[in-house]
Structure formats: C-alpha cells, structure tokens
Amino acid sequence: MKPIWTIAKLSLLENSRKQIFHVLCLMTFAVIAGSTLLSIFTEGVKIKILKDLCLSCILFAGAMLSIGLGSTAIPNDVENRTIYPILARPIARWQYILGKFLGTVLTVAIGIAALSAVFGVLIYCYQGRFDTFLPVAAAFAILEAAVIAAVATTLATFTTAAVAAMISFMVYLLGTVKIGYLAKLLERTPNPIAKLGSQAVYHMLPNLECFNLKAALVHSDSVPGVYLALVTFYGLCYAAFAVGAAALIFKRKEI
C-alpha cells in the first residue's frame, strides 16, 4: 500500500496545482449568481430549483474534473518523463496505475466536498436548515466521478490524452442517458448484428444515471438503503474492473 499511497499523494499534489480549482470557483459563482434570479419563484419551487441547480453543478463538475485529470495523469507523466524515476523503483505497474487513479479520485473528491460545503451553506440560507441528504448525494457524485475517472485512466493507457478525454466525454454523455434513450434505441434496432453490437456497447457503458440522486434531494424523498448499497457496489465494481483493465494494458505497455 505504501507505494500506492505515495503515488496517489504525488498525483494529488500535482493535480492541486492545475487550474481545476479555477473551474470549480467559476461554477460556484455561476450557481450563486443564478440563485439570485430565483426570487421570481415561490418559496417551495425556489428551493427545489436551487437544489437541482446545486447537485447538477456538483455532478457536472465532478465528471469534468474526472475526465480532465484522469485522461491526462499518465500521458503527462510520460511526456514530462517524470514516470521514469518512479517506475525505476521497486513498484509494479498496477501499483502505479492504482496510485494515479486514487490521486485523481482524491482530487475530485476534495473538489466535490468543497462545492458541496458551499452549496450546503447556500441551501441553508434559503431553506433555514441544513439538508442532510446533500452529503449523501455528494458522496454518490464522488462515486460517479470515480467511475468516470477509471474509464478515463483506462483509455489514457493506450491513447493520447486528447483522445482519452474525448472518448471519456462520450462515455459520460452516453452513460447519463443509457437507461432511457439507449434502451429505447436498442428495442427499435431491426438489424440483428447492429442489435448485438448495440447490446455489447450498452452493457459495457457505465450506468451513470444511477448515481444521480437529484430527484430524491429535490423532492426530499427517502431512498432505500438497499438501493444505495447496490449502487455503491455497482460503482466500486465498475471502477475496479476499469482500473484492472488499465493495469493489464499498462503492464504490457512500452514507455
């Protein structure tokens, strides 16, 4: 674990020096500024829209950070040649991959936690009490970000950073509409080969919608514990599978 943690720490320090926090600040200001326009709505609607806005912002920021950091972490190390002294140490390639992935997830988690804290205070100002479900929703946003980061990390082991970012973004878009649009598309495909191909893509894509607890947050609905446990299990398994694939690909890669 020691080498993995050391690489994750180095990755976290490196990521924190990138301009990602500028993006987060920008998004925070956008939401705060947007919230001032809510006065035209009635009290109940206003809070619902605010919560929707906050969680959408958290989910989007988490996804973008995961794509940005996950797809550049390994290619940047190779390009800057910082990877060589590290891999010359007695560490396995999978430890390096896992360390880089954890570094990315930690950075995104810190970013999401910071956003959630700011938005928590904002909701408190409007609602007059803290929304205890916001931390739960934020935790699942982190899990979603971890899944996206795992996909981006895997892609970055065999493509360039730009291609990895582009494909990761497509996976994010398809993953968020998977249950609805893709399932309908699958039903309507007449060609059996195309149907088989679509099914393969459908099952390989992460179902990112399941991490989105916006409806529960907005309408103050309760979410069954079993559902949360299953989603957590799904997210962890998907991320583990993707990182495992990344480790396998990277093990054979020449650098």
């Binding site: 020691k2 080498p3 050391t6 690489i7 720490k9 180095l10 002294p85 590290i86 140490r89 007695p90 560490i91």
Partner: peptide, 9 residues
Amino acid sequence: AHAALAGMD
C-alpha cells in the same frame, strides 16, 4: 517520496 517508493517508512 522516492525513499517511500523504495519501501521505507
């Protein structure tokens, strides 16, 4: 960090 990667505490 490199010493840690070499397995030192």
